[in-house]
Design a protein around this nucleic acid. Sequence first.
DNA 1: TACATACATTTGTATATACAATTATTGTAG
DNA 2: CTACAATAATTGTATATACAAATGTATGTA
Lengths: 152, 152
Amino acid sequence: MDVNKILKSNKPLALESKTIIHLMLVHQSISEKTTEALKPFDVSIQQFNVLRILKGQNGKAANLSTLNERMVSKMSNTTRLVDKLILKDFVKRTVCEENRRKIEIFITKKGKEELLKMSNTMLAMEKELLKDVNTEDLITLNKLLDKLNTDK
Amino acid sequence: MDVNKILKSNKPLALESKTIIHLMLVHQSISEKTTEALKPFDVSIQQFNVLRILKGQNGKAANLSTLNERMVSKMSNTTRLVDKLILKDFVKRTVCEENRRKIEIFITKKGKEELLKMSNTMLAMEKELLKDVNTEDLITLNKLLDKLNTDK
DNA sequence: TACATACATTTGTATATACAATTATTGTAG
DNA sequence: CTACAATAATTGTATATACAAATGTATGTA
């Protein structure tokens, strides 16, 4: 992707602005490819992320706040994401007995099975997207992204 | 931003997956900061982008398809973005006389004035976000992003 | 015990976006 | 010249997201 071709601006943008736009365009592309990759499973990228986090818990429950901390989503919408995953029978939700304000969310057997298929499809998409970026470059890219001042 | 701290996964993710998540998290942060920066002007990042592209036209009109090509937006929504900018008196829309299917969109004087203020605010935000990334790193980052296979 | 406060989640609602269908205009084959 | 396809933009609608307010539960304190 060549950001200059897209911008076609005669007055040159600040390098900072250009970088931000570049990141936006890259995100848009990733987002579209992800939606496409996950379409057969009828889940959104956010629903996929919830499943991936839950599986990372290795049987332990996660409550909503925990999910939320690790996700690109607002609390109120995480509730609704979980609602949708329950409808698909991919996760279970129970009230936490030690603290009834909290809820506990688990991934189900079906959820785990589907997640495995999704992950394979996703990884194929990711490899295709990153096929011209070698390992060394990927490491550099991650290091550079770590330098961004994102409060996280 | 340290993506490993956020993921907290025990089973290590593929470097490709990690990079994609990293980009997603970075985008989310940029998106939030941008919304915040543009709030005083009551425009969205997409509306800002329309204005920036129109200004880059240097008086020449842009039609919707042109705007769309250069933007992170679907055609149908670009129509509505322009609607909102018209309400604010930031742009004007006229039917193209050579081809009445097309419309021509111009930035207004008021639009240009406001865009200048917005750009200053945005640049300050961008510099803050990228304060720990030096020029050389920015160039490297853009080069790496160019390597992504995004069909653009 | 009663009451204020904090915490965890949910609900309501306005706005944003994606996708499909529609309208209006132009181009073109017969 | 008419019919049909192609182009440019708009509209309808379902889903997604952000933000604020509300709900239910727990904790501190007078």
